[in-house]
Design a protein around this nucleic acid. Structure first.
Length: 426
RNA sequence: GUGGACGUAGCUCAGCUGGUAGAGCUCAGGAUUGUGACUCCUGCGGUCGAGGGUUCGAACCCCUUCGUCCACCCCA
C-alpha cells in the first residue's frame, strides 16, 4: 500500500527548524510591538468572492492558483492565498476602520497552487502588516523604516535592498496602460512570447521583461512617470524626502509593478540577491481603494507582507542564526540506578523552581551511566547534574561542566541551584 | 501549466561494459562494575521510489508512473 505523505509543496516544520521560526517570529513581534502595532487573527478560509474581488479576477493567483472548494452547503470557499483581503474584511466587519486609524499585523499560512521551488511553496507563511486611515506618505515611510529596523535586528541589513515606485491612482494607471498597449501593439510580433501574452493579461509586467528584443522596444515606450497624476507624484516625492531624512537607502525602479490589482500609488519590494530566483523577501504598497471595493467606506490603506520561509532561508544561507537559538538544554540531570530516579525528578523540579529561565532536562529511560553521560553531551547542556546512590545518600549532587575542563564538584543539593546560577550566568 | 536534473540504509553518498548492495555519519552495546567529547571493536539498519518490459540474470537497459529539487511563468 502506498505510503501517505505530505501534500506537494506543503512542508512539515521539524523540531530542528522550529527554534529558528520562533526566533524570527519573536524578533518581528518585538519590532512591531515597539511601533504600537496590534495583532489580528483571521480564519484561513474565506468566501471565494473576497479574493476574486480584491486580488483581481484576471490575476494568476485567482485564475489558477487558489485552493477553492465547495462547502457542504454549496458555498464556494477558498484557502487564503494572501492576508490583506481577509484582514480588510475582518477589520471592516467589526468596525475597526470607521473614523479611526489602525496599525495591524498578522501571521499564518497562505496557500497558492504553484509549482514549488526554492523559496516558494504551496503552503507558505507570511507576516503581514496593514495600516488604515492614514493618507500621507509618512505612514508609507514608517512601514519602510520599521522593516529596515527589522533587517537590522536580524542582521540582514546589507543583504537586502529596497526598490520603490509609484504606480499612481487606478485612473492614471488605466490611461497609461492603454498608451503602453497601443505602443507595444505596433511591435507585437517582435515581442517575446511571454510579453505578447502579457499584452492581454498584464501589460505593465512587460516593463519587467528580460528579453533583449523586448527591452529594445521598451526604450521608446511611454513612461508611467509621465502619466502619474499630480497627487501621486507629490505623494511619492514626499515619501522619498522622508526616506532620505530617515537615512533609508532605496532605488526607484520604474518597472516595479505589483501583481495584485488593488495596489496604487506607492509600491515597494525588499529584495535579496542571495536566494536565487525568489529574491523578494518583503513586498507591499498602498491600496486606498480596496476597503471601498469590498463594501466599506473609502479608507486609506497601506501594508506589506514578508515571506517567513524566504527570511529563514536567507538567514541560513548567510549563516546568521544566532548560536543560542538552537540549544535545547542548559542543564541535564542524570539518574543512576532505580533508587535515584525519584530524587532526580524531585531535584530537577527544585532547579526549575529556582532557575525558571534555564532549560533543565531530566534523563529518562534508564541506561548505563556512560549512555546517560552521552545523552547529556548530545543535549547541548553546559552542565550535567549527576545523581547516583552515593549522592542520594549524602544529599549532594555532582556538578560536572560539559563544555570546559573544569573539574566536577560535589555540591549539597540545597545549594545546587545557586551554584548553577553562578556558573550559567557568565 | 512548461522545461531540465535527480530518486540506493534514519542522514550524506559510492556502486565501472548488466553477475542479485557498500562506506561515512547517526543509533545500540562493549574496551572503561558510577562519568560525555578523542580512539578502537561489535551490532542494528535496504522489497535500490513504485509498476511493467528486455535478459539465464536488472540498482544499472527500455516504457509508464509517483516524488523531490532547480528554473520559466507568477509571486512572499
Amino acid at each position: 500500500m502506498a505510503k501517505i505523505q505530505a501534500i506537494r509543496g506543503m512542508n512539515d516544520i521539524l523540531p530542528e527548524q522550529t527554534p529558528v521560526w520562533q526566533f524570527v517570529e519573536a524578533t518581528v513581534r518585538q519590532v512591531l510591538r515597539q511601533y504600537g502595532y496590534q495583532e489580528i487573527r483571521m480564519p484561513i478560509v474565506e468566501q471565494t468572492d473576497l479574493f476574486k474581488r480584491s486580488i483581481g479576477e484576471v490575476t494568476d493567483i485567482v485564475e489558477k492558483e487558489m485552493y477553492t472548494f465547495e462547502d457542504r452547503n454549496g458555498d464556494s470557499l477558498t484557502l487564503r492565498p494572501e492576508g490583506t483581503a481577509g484582514c480588510v474584511r475582518a477589520a471592516e466587519e467589526h468596525g475597526l476602520l470607521f473614523n479611526q486609524t489602525r496599525r495591524l499585523w498578522y501571521t499564518g499560512p497562505m496557500f497558492r497552487h504553484e509549482r514549488p521551488q526554492k523559496g516558494r511553496y504551496r503552503q507558505f507563511h507570511q507576516i503581514g502588516v496593514e495600516c488604515f486611515g492614514m493618507s500621507g506618505p509618512d505612514i508609507d515611510a514608517e512601514l519602510l523604516i520599521l522593516t529596515a529596523r527589522l533587517w537590522q535586528a536580524l542582521e540582514l541589513s546589507g543583504h537586502t535592498r529596497l526598490e520603490i515606485n509609484s504606480i499612481g491612482t487606478s485612473e492614471s494607471r488605466k490611461t497609461y496602460r492603454s498608451a503602453l498597449v497601443d505602443y507595444l501593439s505596433q511591435y507585437k510580433s517582435d515581442l517575446d512570447a511571454d510579453s505578447q501574452r502579457r499584452l492581454e493579461t498584464n501589460p505593465l509586467r512587460i516593463l519587467d521583461s528580460k528579453d533583449a528584443g523586448t527591452r529594445k522596444i521598451l526604450e521608446n515606450a511611454p513612461s508611467l512617470d509621465d502619466y502619474l497624476d499630480e497627487e501621486s507624484r507629490s505623494h511619492f516625492e514626499r515619501l522619498r524626502e522622508l526616506l532620505d531624512a530617515a537615512g533609508i537607502e532605496y532605488t526607484v525602479n520604474p518597472a516595479l509593478v505589483r501583481g495584485l490589482d488593488y495596489y496604487g500609488k506607492t509600491v515597494f519590494e525588499w529584495i535579496t540577491d542571495s536566494l536565487g530566483a525568489q529574491g523578494t523577501v518583503c513586498a507591499g504598497g498602498r491600496y486606498d481603494g480596496l476597503v471601498e471595493q469590498l463594501g466599506g467606506k473609502p479608507t486609506f490603506a497601506v501594508g506589506f507582507a514578508m515571506g517567513i520561509e524566504r527570511l529563514i532561508l536567507l538567514l541560513e544561507t548567510l549563516d546568521l542564526i544566532p548560536e543560542h537559538v538552537n540549544s535545547n538544554a542548559d542543564v541535564y540531570v542524570t539518574a543512576m540506578g532505580d533508587a535515584s530516579v525519584a530524587p532526580a525528578l524531585a531535584l530537577a523540579e527544585q532547579l526549575r523552581n529556582e532557575l525558571p529561565d534555564y532549560v533543565v532536562v531530566t534523563h529518562c529511560g534508564g541506561g548505563s551511566f556512560k549512555s546517560q553521560m552521552k545523552k547529556a553531551d548530545k543535549s547541548g547542556a553546559r552542565y550535567a547534574v549527576i545523581l547516583g546512590e552515593n549522592e542520594v545518600a549524602g544529599g549532594t549532587a555532582g556538578l560536572k561542566p560539559l563544555r570546559s575542563d573544569e573539574p566536577q564538584k560535589e555540591v549539597p543539593q540545597a545549594e545546587l541551584a545557586q551554584a548553577l546560577a553562578d556558573v550559567l550566568s557568565n
